[in-house]
């Protein structure tokens, strides 16, 4: 009690003008945060809540909203296209993870000091720098029936080419392959930086113990690359679930909707030419969001732990 009394004393006696001076340290962070935080709350945080709310309505984006309760979700449960999209999302997610070992492989391949290696590294990284729209167009040409490079190669080897983008059985795999191209480049650059920072002492020590090749990689290198691996997994999972551009550019969800993913199906429902179904679209987005939340929670949990232990 006496402590708080003495603390109050100077406040009372101090001149009014110094309120700012006294509280500067307390107010400053919020003033610094205000513009960015405000924008972020308006454009990112509030819309998440709003989307969840809208998913309980029937709404065309202009007129009255009609309360549906869980009807949108009930409809989803019976929607075959929803399951196709969900299945494709799983394919994307699983196959996209190949980017992590593939990126590591290329990074190891390129982690040398021969002349010109820096240019090689930059050029290997190239696919990540260009837009997914351009990647999509490049691969559309690569797969194009009758004259696409890959089509011709397969035709040359087996006698008949395969029109990957027109075949419901292959199309999603073809899209994932296109998406993997820049993603592998991204993982590669993460691992190149990681490899660069491995302590040479440990490698030398391991060499003295006769560790080499695979054993060295598995027991010495990969454990030291853990921060790079963590980030590579985070960006790859996020990238897989965000796959929209490639689908939109290369197939527009086709053929017969067989290459849709949730992000694309949502867009199609909410802004389709057959009329806007904002509520139903929002419900699809909520499902995608919940899937993403499983991963986000895991990532954040790990980052909070690191933050606590790191001080």
């Amino acid at each position: 009690m006496s402590g708080s009394a003495t603390a109050v004393m100077p406040v009372v006696s101090a001149p009014r003008t110094s309120y700012w001076k006294r509280n500067q340290r307390k107010l400053a962070p919020w003033l610094f945060l205000a513009p960015g935080l405000l924008m972020f709350l308006i454009y990112v945080i509030w819309p998440i809540g709003n989307s969840i709310w809208l998913s309980f309505f029937d709404w065309d984006g202009l007129g009255e909203k009609t309360w549906l309760g869980l009807d949108n979700y009930a409809e989803l449960m019976d929607d075959e296209n929803f399951y196709i999209s969900l299945k494709n999302n799983v394919i994307w997610l699983v196959l996209f993870m190949l980017a992590v070992p593939a990126g590591l492989f290329i990074a190891i391949f390129l982690n040398q000091t021969v002349t010109g290696i820096r240019i090689y590294k930059s050029l290997f990284f190239f696919p990540f720098v260009i837009s997914q729209v351009v990647v999509g167009l490049i691969f559309s040409w690569f797969y194009a029936p009758n004259f696409g490079l890959l089509f011709k190669l397969i035709e040359w080897v087996t006698g008949t080419g395969i029109a990957f983008l027109a075949d419901p059985d292959y199309v999603t795999y073809a899209l994932v392959a296109a998406g993997l191209w820049p993603q592998i480049a991204y993982c590669m650059i993460l691992y190149l930086t990681g490899l660069n920072n491995i302590s040479p002492d440990q490698i030398e020590a391991a060499r003295l113990d006769n560790a080499s090749g695979w054993r060295m990689l598995w027991y010495v290198i990969i454990p030291q690359l853990r921060p790079a691996t963590f980030i590579a997994i985070v960006v790859t999972v996020i990238g897989a679930l965000r796959s929209f551009d490639i689908v939109s550019i290369m197939t527009d969800g086709g053929p017969f909707g067989s290459s849709r993913v949730l992000s694309f199906y949502m867009y199609e429902q909410a802004l389709s030419e057959y009329g806007y179904r904002m509520g139903y679209g929002a419900a699809i987005a909520v499902v995608l969001f919940l899937i993403m939340m499983i991963f986000i929670t895991g990532f954040i949990w790990k980052m909070v732990n690191d933050e606590r232990s790191g001080g």
Binding site: A28, L241, M266, M278, A282, I284, L288, M292, I296
Partner: peptide, 28 residues
């Protein structure tokens, strides 16, 4: 600054960064 909600605000920024665009689409 060390204020009480520091980590909370920080991780809100981080988490917001990872959300799918589609959950923002209709309201934005």
């Amino acid at each position: 600054y060390n204020f009480r909600s520091n980590l909370l605000v920080f991780f809100m920024f981080v988490a917001g960064n990872f959300v799918p665009f589609q959950i923002l689409m209709v309201p934005v």
